[in-house]
């Protein structure tokens, strides 16, 4: 795409800006900021990626992945404020998911160990793991709060913290995975996944694009399941003290 064509895409920003102004939606400022930020951030990422790809240095790949994990942790951690030490728990979860998925991909020779594969796939895995963490934490804190009396009941009957929180934990793990599973059921019918569309537009063979998309989807299924279960089992013990009492607030 030429720079002239790229500039013309700003028409797609002007339309909502005009609508916002005419209808007094008051979104003009936010949309302008969002546009400028996306231009700067994406261009910066593009140049950084180009630099990393050209250098083919494992150190740079490692640094990029580390940066993604830090940014994703920072984003997700705001949702789990009620859970002690949530920041490092999310970080450990993201690292675990990343190491596990890349380990399988590279270990079984599914994808080559080059920046071109590791970085975009890591981006998708870490990004999805972050969203799953947020979904899980939202649901789990709500479940714990809503069913405090059942937790207290099980403790009062001589149940352990794990028994007392088991239902809430399982419900939250299931609920956080549903969007991932549901979106896979309709994939291709309603809309083409972004990555696949991008590949096809860039000139790739559609069948090859589909193969990669399948790989990514299965990868994201693992990401979803492992994130919720891992984070869940790291989180629930901090809701109790050594005397097996439920800590409030």
């Amino acid at each position: 795409m030429s720079y002239w064509a790229l500039s013309l895409t700003l028409i797609f920003v002007l339309i909502p800006l005009l609508l916002s102004k005419t209808l007094n939606l008051g979104l003009g400022r936010d949309m302008t900021v969002a546009t400028i930020r996306s231009i700067i951030q994406l261009l910066a990422v593009g140049y950084v990626l180009k630099f990393v790809f050209d250098s083919e240095s494992l150190l740079y790949i490692f640094l990029m992945v580390a940066l993604m994990i830090i940014a994703a942790t920072h984003n997700a951690q705001k949702k789990g404020a009620a859970i002690q030490g949530i920041t490092w728990k999310i970080a450990v979860t993201l690292i675990f998911v990343e190491v596990l998925t890349q380990g399988i991909l590279i270990g079984f020779n599914i994808t080559p160990a080059t920046a071109q594969y590791i970085i975009p796939i890591s981006g998708m895995v870490i990004g999805n793991s972050m969203v799953l963490s947020i979904l899980f934490l939202n649901r789990f804190t709500a479940e714990v709060e809503d069913h405090q009396d059942q937790t207290e009941l099980i403790l009062s009957l001589g149940g352990t913290p794990k028994q007392a929180i088991h239902r809430q934990l399982i419900n939250s793990i299931k609920a956080s995975m549903i969007p991932t599973i549901e979106s896979q059921k309709t994939v291709g019918l309603v809309q083409l996944p972004g990555m696949m569309s991008g590949q096809i537009i860039a000139g790739a063979d559609p069948i090859q694009a589909v193969q990669f998309q399948l790989l990514i989807m299965f990868l994201l299924l693992t990401t979803a399941a492992v994130t919720s279960v891992f984070l869940g089992y790291l989180s629930y013990p901090t809701l109790f003290n050594k005397r097996m009492q439920l800590l409030k607030g």
């Binding site: 009396d149 059942q150 207290e152 009941l153 403790l155 009062s156 097996m244 009492q245």
Partner: peptide
């Protein structure tokens, strides 16, 4: 041990919570 204590000292909670 909290588990042993709670089996020995049984409690019916005010809200009669149910699973």
């Amino acid at each position: 041990d909290p588990v042993e204590l709670r089996r020995m000292v049984g409690m019916a909670l005010q809200s009669a919570p149910m699973i």
